[in-house]
Design a protein around this nucleic acid. Structure first.
Lengths: 255, 255
DNA sequence: CGGCAAGTTGAGCCAGGTCAACTCCGGTGG
DNA sequence: CCACCGGAGTTGACCTGGCTCAACTTGCCG
């Protein structure tokens, strides 16, 4: 007999947003998982202790932005990956290695899932398995795409790519040509492997060329998506900036 | 009644190496999978056609090295990820997007797994699920680590990291302090986001400092693993003994 | 042993890193 | 309500790691 899920689960985005893990599991499973798991709120800069990650190595992001950060000996820091709503971070057998640190970049609500319950649900519920599998593959390809961006792109091109990455991740929430940058400039710089100064210069460059408009520090309005796309794809040629046919095609093919 | 696996499977490393996918599934499952799947041999530079990836979106690497390559408008090319023995590349629902191209970097034996059989085995066999899950997570963290390397490390540091990455992947096959570079210089350069000339200079630098010795173009002997490790970790000081755990992050650990 | 691709070496230059000064903005207290 | 403060972001001037291009050497395969 199915017990109704806990109140905290009904408020949690992992449950209330369609298609996320806790939305696709059965009431029974949700109830069991909820009993064995722990929610938490992290503020910017906070992380998990080593032992917390040993007993709770599976973290699901309900709201906010988490980052995987690596620290070099001389203090250089890099943000290797960003995790947002719906991402499930499975650090089993990894936390003790020389991996990065999981650090919140903004106030975030997370759920430390019970490994045992998670495992059980994964083995018995194909829907859940599918959602989690899909999410992990998305993480993988996001990381691979990000590597590609970092390895050969110039600063301006990386920033353009990042704007598209943000746009893609918030497709459901936000209007067509408005993008929210969910992280601070410094974090953005560390994620893109550049300096905050350079990030600033690149934003300014895009704005001067009429490709974007900065409504506020984290709200970017896209004035010419094709031009931005071309920059992201490494097209150096500034000519043929206006191509309405391509514009509509791009918009139609999205979503 | 279990039918004995096909001869091609007994020769294939996905079956004969312990712990790989075809080693952990049942004879029945192997038989079914073998019937529905297709092996292939790729030579350096070869790739799969678009429609081949639509019907065969799951590729398992038995031998050799495959790469995920991204091409920019002006011809710049980057290798975003490397796949080797045991890696299972699941491109379902991804092949038609703006993802990279899967290209062999050396003569490789692969198996295009039947998606239906793969899915069935994944849902019914926890051992198989575990192996595949583990492999995908390794791919993810490899990609994330690689992003971290690319974003903040200098050329020499990236090369040092790469040598360790190679060493780690061939741990079972090779002696303690000898590492095989499984790709050409050009590919290595594209993977690390640098120029072949720079790669060459960095190898020379490591050799002059007595940290490695190049037995041949692809066989590296490690003369000082700690020194190499320090370089990979971004330690500029050649005589640093390391300051333990200057954990500047705020720790959160709750029940 | 010739021919070609792969890799190496050298010289010059530029994108973006570095450093320092400045502006902007939100929060706080008088 | 304003004045102040501190952190985040921006701007400018200068400098350097690694990219570029070209010449050279090495290694591979028929």
């Amino acid at each position: 007999m199915a017990v109704k899920p806990k109140v905290k689960c009904q408020k949690c985005a992992m449950y209330s947003e369609t298609g996320l893990f806790c939305d696709v599991i059965s009431p029974d499973e949700l109830d069991g998982l909820s009993d064995e798991s722990r929610t938490a709120t992290l503020k910017r800069g906070e992380t998990f202790s080593g032992e917390a990650l040993t007993t709770w190595p599976i973290v699901a992001v309900a709201t906010g932005v988490l980052s995987m950060q690596h620290l070099l000996e001389d203090g250089r820091k890099s943000i290797a990956a960003l995790f947002m709503q719906g991402d499930i971070i499975d650090l089993r057998d990894i936390s003790n290695r020389n991996r990065g640190h999981l650090i919140a970049l903004s106030t975030s609500n997370v759920c430390r899932l019970s490994p045992a319950m998670f495992q059980r649900i994964m083995e018995s519920n194909p829907d859940a398995q599918h959602v989690v599998w899909r999410n992990l593959r998305d993480q993988t390809f996001r990381a691979i795409d990000h590597s590609a961006d970092l390895s050969k792109k110039q600063a301006l091109e990386k920033l353009a790519s990042f704007i598209f990455e943000c746009r893609h991740r918030q497709a459901r929430n936000v209007s067509e040509n408005s993008v929210v940058i969910p992280v601070r400039r410094v974090d953005l710089a560390e994620y893109l492997g550049m300096q905050p100064e350079t990030v600033s210069r690149c934003f300014r460059n895009l704005e001067e060329r009429g490709i974007v408009e900065l409504k506020s520090i984290k709200h970017v309005k896209l004035l010419s998506i094709p031009a931005l796309r071309r920059i992201a794809n490494g097209d150096k040629n500034p000519v043929n900036l206006r191509d309405p046919a391509k514009d509509t095609f791009k918009i139609l093919s999205f979503g």
